[in-house]
């Protein structure tokens, strides 16, 4: 049994070494980025100043008009190759960075959730594909702001 355990540990280590980009079950919550108060600051703190280029291969699907900003359904999909992560921001929220999704290699290129949007503003989806970052944005008008 002990030997089997060792082999398991060894193969797990080998697997990790071979697929170094496998999702970590533990990662540090990026407080500096989540506490940033502007879109530019949030992006800079979260992505370390890496360039982000606009892409038509990302779709930020959100209604044009939403009555209750506390519940804004949003879906980000992408046709970019091998998307590794999807990050959501609301440009004019007090803290624009909303959520970050790390996609495993078997995860589909679409995430849907509901977010709080404080005032009419762009919803931004950032996708990491390969080693590069791409983004798309779509304006949503909210009638009653949800405290984001």
């Amino acid at each position: 049994m002990r030997r089997r355990g060792f082999l398991h540990a060894q193969s797990a280590f080998l697997g990790f070494a071979l697929f170094g980009k496998a999702l970590r079950a533990l990662a540090e919550w990026n407080a500096k980025a989540f506490d940033a108060t502007t879109e530019a600051e949030a992006l800079a703190k979260f992505f370390g100043g890496r360039p982000i280029e606009p892409s038509a291969e990302i779709n930020v699907d959100v209604l044009d008009l939403v009555e209750d900003g506390a519940f804004v359904p949003v879906q980000v999909t992408t046709t970019l190759p091998r998307p590794r992560s999807i990050t959501l921001l609301a440009a004019k929220n007090p803290h624009p960075l909303i959520a970050h999704f790390e996609l495993g290699s078997r995860c589909g290129a679409a995430i849907a959730t509901r977010i709080k949007v404080a005032e009419p503003a762009d919803i931004i989806g950032v996708v990491e594909s390969g080693d590069r970052l791409y983004s798309a944005r779509r304006f949503v008008k909210v009638i009653a702001g949800g405290c984001g």
Partner: peptide, 14 residues
């Protein structure tokens, strides 16, 4: 196997 890992903020809806 972890298929999706999420970091969320206070701005994900209730």
């Amino acid at each position: 196997d972890v298929v999706l890992r999420c970091d969320w903020s206070r701005a994900v809806s209730k």
